[in-house]
Design a protein around this nucleic acid. Structure first.
Lengths: 345, 345
DNA sequence: TTGTAAGCGTTATCAC
DNA sequence: GTGATAACGCTTACAA
């Protein structure tokens, strides 16, 4: 009957959420008995139990999980997820995958956005460790990963995502960037293309790998890559369109492009439409309407959510093993699949 | 010199992260002095300070924020964010907005995904309260919001997002669903359309409002809405395409559609292309390539990230005011803007 | 079956 | 300047 608000109003000052002691007092028992009821200890008498439950209900009591984990030892039921940019669908799908696995274990996700800034990342990770999360999944922003080393995080399990560990030992889940790039470029080569351009974002590890795949595959086919056809600092569609327009305006322009992400693919499409030309594109990332574009197109598709799920599984495995384990770091590679679309319409 | 790992190895058993007491012992001072150094208390002697800092460094010590918030009172520096589906760009942008504001205050975001299930939501919110988050932002999944009432969350500040409070008092940030819908339908009417279809997802509040805007505007124009032209259970693009195809196959088919979200807009576009017809569409949600579709199109655009930012601002205002305040619940409406594209290409 | 005491890691308060 | 003590809310170990 009495709501929590009224119950609190008894005291002169609002005193925050009700505590176990208050419940105990109201039920006329000791705090331990309340604790036992909460733990479904079968030894408490049905009567006592009922009184405690009533008091809990009346006060709107909830056990303080912070205090609990302080006493009972080390596990807080929270895992940290440190990503570079939530607005990017890649990362939000990753987050979804992580969340789904982690929630299945009753764990919560504490989120951090780094904007690809290593200092933010260092700070965030430090904060998560200070909050005693049970593990951390991070998409590392840069080459400096010293703050992710086991010693730096007091042994908190860490799983890297999308980019590999550098100078530290840690589990990681990677995408098959190299394989995907090769498949894409081979598709262009099979189409008879020889003058192929590359468009990508500034070189984080991922796009560097994709560029490497481009170079390797071209080299193996005995085709020289023209440096003027390689552009890799387009962060958004507009920049990509501009770069594509420039390349397409060159003498002996490329007849095809390999794009390291969907923003660049979209940029080429826009450039092509505006110039009323036709080019062939193979690009990383599946995207909405890819099959409807009037352009010979293939995309490198993959399951981002699965990457997140796998990262979460690896993390949980480490957590279960306890910091004690010194199993060598694992590395899982998520496969890619080339999906080609007809230009016909 | 000595790394945390080695320091721990002193004891027989790995004993978790180093504590303040261990730092104190190593520095030859009391725990209080360590605490004071951490608080930059000017009274500690430079020498003592240095010894403590050294010990901290050697042990890789980090203050336990959980224990800290237990002692120092109520604030954990975490806010809960409970959304329905992270994979939906709407929610990930929302999350980004929330994160950016909240991070500016040194707060962390604890994430929860409900999949639009009220039971999940209830559970999640309960969990967050048990973890003593300082506030909660939630996109409520259903009409039953009793678990979000102030009493149910022990007075933890709650801000609702995208959907209004029902039978409870709470701050909220809404999108101008009604206004956006009216603008969209008016645009179609100005284009001379009379037989207009409606396509939308199953009726959560948001799409119900958009449907209401459709009906209102049609009624005011003195045009009868044909029930056979109203379909609202398309959850994805494929279902939307199917529905659109059916409507377009009817005798006296619609010449235009108002779509309650981008998935339905995309479905119409696909149907149109496959049927080689032309229809006009006005739809909620901005999306990539909207300007490139060969179809007379207008979209209702809005700033999702700003919604998140606003929600975070409201929450922080409540948190600062303390649970004590009984200011009436505030309601902020984020405006929409109609963006029309030329079909010309 | 239930209660008491001690302690998890930190800090406010009051001594020294 | 620095330290002892108690307390935050809870639970393990032991006593009654």
């Amino acid at each position: 009957m009495t709501s929590s608000a009224y119950a609190n109003a008894d005291s002169t000052q609002v005193s925050g959420p009700p505590t176990m002691k208050e419940v105990a007092a109201r039920a006329g028992v000791s705090a331990m008995t309340v604790s036992r009821v909460l733990h479904e200890d079968p030894r408490v008498l049905p009567n006592t139990r009922r009184m405690v439950l009533t008091a809990i209900d009346e006060l709107g009591y909830r056990r303080n999980e912070l205090a609990r984990s302080l006493r009972v030892g080390r596990t807080t039921g929270m895992v940290g997820l440190v990503i570079t940019n939530l607005a990017n669908p890649f990362y939000s799908q990753l987050a979804l995958g992580v969340e789904s696995v982690v929630a299945g274990r009753g764990l919560k996700v504490v989120l951090g956005n780094t904007n690809d800034d290593v200092d933010n990342e260092r700070q965030l990770v430090g904060d998560l460790v200070a909050r005693r999360v049970d593990g951390i999944i991070v998409v590392p922003a840069g080459r400096d990963q010293t703050h992710l080393a086991p010693a730096a995080v007091n042994g908190t399990p860490v799983v890297l995502c999308a980019r590999p560990p550098i100078d530290i030992s840690a589990d990681c889940v990677l995408l098959d960037d190299l394989g995907g790039a090769r498949a894409a470029v081979e598709w262009l080569l099979r189409g008879g293309h020889r003058r192929i351009g590359f468009l990508g974002p500034p070189a984080v590890w991922t796009s560097a790998e994709r560029l490497r795949g481009f170079h390797d595959t071209m080299a193996e086919a005995g085709i020289a890559v023209e440096p003027r056809f390689v552009r890799s600092d387009q962060r958004d569609v507009a920049a990509a369109e501009k770069a594509a327009t420039e390349l397409l305006g060159m003498p002996d322009a490329p007849t095809a492009f390999f794009c390291a992400n969907s923003r660049n693919t979209l940029g080429v499409y826009r450039a092509m439409r505006h110039l009323r030309t036709e080019v062939t594109v193979a690009g990383f990332d599946q995207f909405e309407l890819a099959d409807m574009l009037e352009m010979p197109l293939a995309v490198v598709a993959y399951d981002t959510e699965e990457m997140g799920r796998e990262a979460a599984r690896m993390l949980i495995a480490r957590m279960d093993a306890g910091a004690a384990t010194s199993e060598p770091a694992r590395r899982v590679v998520v496969p890619t699949k080339l999906v080609a679309f007809d230009a016909a319409h």
